Amino acid sequence: MRKFILGTCLSFACLIGTSYAATAPEQVTSKFQTTYAKTQYPIVFSHGMSGFIRIGTDPLGVDYWYQILPDLARNGANVWASRVSPFNSSEIRGEQLLHQVEEVIALTGSPKVNLIGHSHGGPTIRYVAGVRPELVASMTAIGAPHQGSPVSDFILKIRDTAPILETPIVAVVNLLSKAIIWAQGLDPVSFPHDSLAGANSLSLAGSAIFNQKYPIGVPQNSCSEGLYREQGIYNYSFTGIGTVTNPLDVDSALKITSLLIDGGQENDGLVSRCSAKFGKTIRDDLNWNHLDEVNQVLGLKSVFAPDPVSMYRQHANRLKQQGL
Rank of each mutant, 00 (worst) to 15 (best):
F4T: 10
L6T: 05
F12N: 02
C14Y: 10
S19H: 08
A22C: 15
T23V: 11
P25M: 13
P42Y: 10
P42Q: 04
M49W: 05
M49S: 05
S50Y: 01
I53L: 10
L60I: 13
Q67E: 13
N75A: 12
S82Q: 07
F87H: 01
I92W: 08
H99D: 08
V104R: 01
G117C: 09
H118P: 00
H118F: 09
H120G: 02
H120V: 03
E134R: 07
A137C: 12
S138V: 07
G143A: 10
P145R: 10
H146C: 00
Q147A: 06
V151W: 02
F154T: 03
I158E: 06
P163D: 07
A171L: 03
N174Q: 02
K178W: 06
K178E: 04
A183D: 11
D194P: 00
L196H: 08
L196W: 09
N200A: 06
L204K: 12
P219Y: 15
C223E: 02
L227F: 07
D249R: 11
T257I: 06
S258Y: 08
S258F: 09
L259R: 03
N267H: 03
C274M: 14
G279F: 06
T281A: 14
I282F: 06
H290W: 04
V294H: 02
V297I: 13
V303A: 15
F304S: 11
M311C: 01
